[in-house]
Simulated scan of single mutants.
Amino acid sequence: MLKTDIISVEKFNSSVTFLKKEKIFIDIVHDDLDFLIINKSSNFVVHPGIKHTSGTLLNAILYYFPNNISLPRAGIVHRLDKNTTGLMIIAKTLNSYNYFIKILKKRKVIREYDAIVFGQIFSNNIINRPIKRHIYCRTKMMIHLGGKKAITHYTVINIFKNFTHLRLKLETGRTHQIRVHLNSIQHPLLGDPIYNSFRKITSKKIESSTSIFLKKILKKYTRQALHASFLKFKHPITSKIMKWEQQPPNDFKNVLNALYNNGYF
């Protein structure tokens, strides 16, 4: 008779329990018993990973809100890329976490972004192109017929000589959605180090028709020009309509100011 090994499998909260609490500054815009709204800075990773086991937003949440250790992802219900700034929702109870996941899926959270893109866009439009994980580079996303539905609305705010200031509204929330979508219509985000298939073309145009002052500002700008500027949804307990608007950080504003000084289209 063969000896049988008994294997016990214990379910746990996806490594959150094992992450350390870290005193990292968080810009809190709203705080009540059920959720937080924060204004995320650039160069700030949201979730820990192989390359970032500390110094993340999740580590900071565990320090200031230790009860969040019992929540999935410490209450983080959606994410922003490392160098994307702006408004994020953090749940503080399991009920509110489940509520936000639900209304995000039902597209009942209004999320709007400010963006500066290469090239001139003259009319408002919608990008409806499915997105999936890149076939060859697993850290990237791509447009693909076999991908998940992804819809981005954009409105033109101002048109400059080589750039356009857009306000974007997400209907879905795929990873890197805005960055992938804008690159797919040949208007990648200023400063995007990954999704800019037209870097050589845009660089030549800028070099030939841009003031020295603007060139200096653009040279200093090293991240994607994307800022989560607006949030709107119903409160999970009171059902009161809540909304927040957050101005972009100074580096983003400096680029916009330089663009205005360089002249409109």
Rank of each mutant, 00 (worst) to 15 (best):
L2T: 10
I7F: 02
F12P: 05
V16R: 09
L19S: 06
K23P: 09
I24G: 03
F25S: 14
F25N: 14
H30Y: 15
D34Y: 00
F35H: 00
F35L: 04
L36Q: 12
S41L: 10
S42E: 14
N43P: 06
V45Q: 12
I50A: 03
H52S: 06
G55D: 12
T56P: 11
Y63Q: 09
Y64I: 06
F65D: 09
P66N: 14
N67I: 04
N68Y: 01
L71A: 07
R73W: 04
R73Q: 08
R73S: 06
I76D: 09
K82V: 08
T84M: 08
T84V: 15
T85E: 14
T85V: 13
T85L: 07
G86F: 07
L87W: 10
M88S: 04
M88K: 01
I90C: 02
N95A: 14
N95H: 06
K102W: 11
I103W: 15
K105A: 15
K108V: 08
V109Q: 15
Y113R: 14
F118V: 09
F118S: 00
F118K: 00
F118H: 03
G119S: 02
I121Q: 02
I121C: 03
I121D: 01
S123W: 06
R129L: 15
K132R: 02
K132W: 05
H134W: 07
Y136L: 03
T139K: 00
T139V: 05
M141G: 01
M142S: 02
M142W: 02
G147K: 03
K148F: 05
T152K: 02
V156F: 04
I159R: 01
T164R: 02
L166Y: 02
R167P: 01
L168I: 12
T175Q: 10
T175S: 10
R179I: 10
S184K: 07
Q186H: 02
Q186W: 00
Q186I: 02
P188C: 05
L190G: 10
L190Y: 13
L190R: 05
G191S: 14
D192V: 03
P193L: 00
N196E: 05
F198Q: 05
F198E: 07
I201H: 03
S203F: 11
K205R: 10
S208M: 10
F213K: 03
K216T: 12
K216F: 06
K219S: 13
Y221S: 10
T222A: 13
A228P: 13
A228K: 10
K234I: 04
P236D: 08
S239R: 05
S239P: 00
E245H: 13
Q246Y: 08
P248F: 11
P249Q: 12
P249G: 06
N250H: 09
D251W: 02
K253W: 04
L256D: 11
L259G: 08
